[in-house]
Computed example of a mutant assay.
Amino acid sequence: MAVAVGSITLFQPFSASPASFASSKHISRHTFVTTFSPATQRSISRPYLTIVRAQRPTWLPGLDPPPHLDGTLAGDFGFDPLGLGEDPESLKWYVQAELVHARFAMAGVAGILFTDLLRVTRISNLPVWYEAGAVKFSFASTQTLFIVQLILMGFAETKRFMDFTNPGSQAQEGSFFGLEAALEGLEPGYPGGPLLNPLGIAKDIKNAHDWKLKEIKNGRLAMVAMLGMIIQAYVTHVGPIDNLMEHLSDPWHRTVIQTLSGAGS
């Protein structure tokens, strides 16, 4: 009795030469058992190879990704339960929106943790992060700071939108006061040049899939962390370092569950 192991059976005759094995790109790593009766086994005069189609990772194992998510995008695990990206133009915009939000979240989480650590250790007299916006600075009024931020952010976002609608246009000569080389974009969403890419990482952005994947994974984690910090501040009214120190002081009784249920207060 013959036994074949795999997940999907596609029987194809093959020769025993190394070239035949080299041409078989998708070999099953899953397990199933198919048995052949002696009569059936005698009718097979040549060796057979079990070949399967390898499935890419998805956010839910075993789930078939939607057709518009074919795995070419960085961090594409087939997650689009509402079908928001079915329109190709909308999908391009959502990709850029997620990338920008991910970068803001990474900067925000790093800034919150760093300033909160300085505050808790009394190295600097800083406000808790969710009250920083209400602080009155001596060097400028709140209205002045708001206007300056509006101009700077508006300029940066306008340049980003123009590069999205017309890729490469913002690297053309005369588009940024003669400083285009310092801000030369590699592709929409990935600015380069010595100012925004001083280490020269992933200069060949078309083939930098690993770098893109690492960035979007860290960005998604940061967005979840930022949401957690917002909820944490609303419930406990303290910063994340304070929450961490409280948890470490009594790990078995100062937990998220007990804090949310009120048992830890």
Rank of each mutant, 00 (worst) to 15 (best):
L126Q: 03
P127Q: 01
V128C: 15
W129K: 06
Y130E: 03
A132I: 05
G133N: 07
V135C: 07
V135M: 15
F137Y: 13
F139I: 11
A140L: 10
S141D: 00
T142W: 00
T142V: 09
Q143F: 09
T144W: 01
F146A: 01
I147Q: 15
I147L: 09
V148M: 13
L150Q: 09
I151V: 15
L152F: 00
F155D: 06
F155M: 05
A156K: 06
A156S: 06
E157H: 15
T158C: 13
T158P: 02
K159S: 07
K159L: 04
K159M: 13
K159T: 02
R160Y: 04
R160T: 06
F161Q: 03
M162T: 14
D163V: 00
N166H: 11
P167C: 07
P167G: 12
P167A: 07
S169Q: 01
A171D: 05
E173G: 10
G174L: 07
G174A: 09
S175Y: 04
F176P: 01
F177T: 08
F177Q: 05
G178K: 02
L179H: 09
A181R: 15
A181Y: 02
A181T: 05
A182R: 12
G185L: 04
G185N: 08
G185E: 11
L186H: 08
P188S: 04
P191L: 06
P191C: 12
G192N: 06
G192H: 02
G193F: 00
P194D: 07
L195C: 07
L196S: 10
P198S: 10
P198V: 03
L199W: 12
L199P: 02
G200D: 06
G200I: 10
I201P: 12
I201M: 15
A202I: 04
K206W: 04
K206I: 00
N207G: 12
A208H: 04
A208F: 02
H209Y: 09
K212A: 03
K212H: 11
L213E: 02
L213N: 00
K214Y: 09
I216A: 06
K217H: 14
R220G: 14
L221W: 15
L221N: 03
A222H: 04
M223K: 09
M223N: 07
M223W: 02
V224W: 04
M226C: 10
L227G: 03
G228T: 04
G228S: 14
G228F: 08
I231C: 09
Q232T: 12
Y234S: 12
Y234E: 13
V235T: 09
T236N: 14
T236D: 04
G239I: 11
G239M: 03
P240S: 08
P240C: 08
D242R: 03
N243I: 10
N243S: 06
N243K: 11
